[in-house]
Design a protein around this nucleic acid. Sequence first.
RNA 1: GGCCCCUUGGUCAAGCGGUUAAGACACCGGCCUUUCACGCCGGUAACAGGGGUUCGAGUCCCCUAGGGGUCACCA
Length: 492
Amino acid sequence: MNRNKKQGGYTLADVRVRFAPSPTGPLHIGGARSALFNYLFAAHHQGALVIRIEDTDIERSQREYETEILESLTWLGLEWNEGIDTGGEFAPYRQMERRDLYQNFSRELLDQGGAYFCFCSQEDLEAERQSLMEDKGMPLYQGKCRELSIQETEQRLAEGFKPSIRFRVPANTVYVVDDLVRGRVSFDSDNIGDFIIMKSDGIPTYNFAVVVDDHLMKITHVIRAEEHLSNTPRQLMLFDALNFKRPQFAHISLILGSDRQKMSKRHGATSMIQYREMGYLPEAMFNFLALLGWSPEGEEEILSKEQLVQQFTLKRVARHPAVFDVDKLNWLNQQYIKQKTITELKALLKPFLLQSDLAPAVEALDDAKYELLVTAIRDYLVCLSDAPVHSRIFFTPRDEEPEAAAILQGEKVMQVLQYFSRELPETDGVDEIAGFLKSIAKKNKLKPKEVFMPLRCALTGQTKGPELPYLISIWGREETLRRMKQTMNLLL
RNA sequence: GGCCCCUUGGUCAAGCGGUUAAGACACCGGCCUUUCACGCCGGUAACAGGGGUUCGAGUCCCCUAGGGGUCACCA
C-alpha cells in the first residue's frame, strides 16, 4: 500500500480514506468493521489509509486506548499508511496536536461572519432544550447570541466570559449527499440549529475538526457508520463555508445485537481484544466482519484478505443493518483453524494451554507428544481457547459417568479388558496402537464396537472423547495399564 | 416530537420488471465412523402490510406499521 508514496506525491484521483477512532475505549466490533471497510476500499484502489486519533473529548480520551486500538487493528491484519505511529505527510495525526489549525479556521469563519461567539451557559441551553422539547419537539438552538453586536461581544469578552463559537447555519437551504451506499439523501437546513464548532475551552467539536482534517489530509472518501449520516449536512455546510472540496461519503449500516438493538456490552463481547482472548483467529474475524454488510459476487464466503481486497466494492455494501451472528463467526473460526498446519496450531494453542490449569502437564510433554495432542483435538476446536477443555481428558484421572459404568457391565467386557492388558504392545506409536486395537476385535471375534467402547469406558470413564490411540500414546503404556487395572479391580 | 435511514427464511444475505426467490450459518434427517466431533448428502424455512404503475412487481411509486440513527461545549 505504499505504492503511491514511492511514486512521489498524490494526485487528486488517488483514493485516500481514513479511520478516525476516538480513544475513549477499546476497539469495538462496529469500529473494527468501519476500519476494515476503509482498509478494503483503500487497498482495492491502491490508495492510502490514514488513522487519525480524534481525542477532542478530553474527559474520556485516554492514551492507553490509542495503543490498544492500534494493536487491535494490527491484530486484525490491517495496515495503514499514515498515523500517529507511522507518521506521514499530514502529521500530526492526533487532533489535540492540531489545535492551532482549528483555531485558524474558526477565526476565518468568525471574520467572514460564518460563525459567532456564543455566551450561553450550559444551564441555559439545557433549559431551552427542555422547553422546546415540550412544545415544539425540536430542540434547536434558538440563536440567542446570533446577533450580538460587536460591542456586546467585546464587553463579555472583557468581562472574562469564555465563549464557544457557533456556526451560522444558512437558512432554508437543502443539502444533498450523494451517498455511495445509500444514494441521494437530502436535508433541510431549517431542521438544523446553529451548532458549536469550538468549545469554550478552545477545543474543536467533532463536526468541525473532522471537516478541517478531512480537507487538510486530502481525504477523498469518508466511509463511516450510519450514525454519522445526520451529521453530514453540518459537515457539508462547513466544507462549503470554508471553500473546501467535499469528499464523497459512504455510510454503512450499524451492527445490531440479537435483539436488533445497537450492539452493546450487554450483548456479550464487543471489543476486538475480547475476541482475541477468546481464541478467535484474526483471519476469521477479518473474513466475518467483511461479510457483515458486504457480500461477495460469487458463492464462496471463506475468503482470504487478498481475495477480499480484490473483490471489495462499495456497490455491494448493504443498506440495512446486520445482526451479529456468533454462530457464523464460530463456524468461520473453525474453518480457519482447520486450515492451519499442525506446526502453526502447536504455536497458536500453546498460550491457551499454558494459561489453564493444565499448564504443568502440557509443559511436561515432549514435542512429539505435544504434537499428538494437538492433532488429537484439532477437529474439536471452535476457538483456540477450547483447547484446554478438549485436552483435559489426557491429563486428569479417570472420571466415570453412569453411561460408561453401564457399558462396562456388558458380558464380553472383561474378556476385552484382559486381552488388552495382556497384549498391549510396548510402543507409543499411534499407528501401532491403532493396529493393535483393531486386532483385538479379530482375535476375539468381536465387533469393533464391542471392543472400542468398553476400552474407552474402562480407560476414561467417558463414552465420548478423542480417538483411543492418541489417548494411549500420550498417557504411555504404564499409565494406560494402571488405569486399566484400576477399572478391572472395580469391576471384580 | 422533527429530520434521516432501513425492512427477503431464526441469522448473514443474492436478486436489480418475467427465477421452481440463490448461497452460507443455525436447525432437522441420513451417510461415514471404534464414541463424540469432523466430513459428505438431503430437508424445513422468506419477499412486513395495504394501495397503485405495468401484460407482468421482492424488484418502480405512495401510504401504514415496525426497527434504527440523529437533533450535545460526545464522537
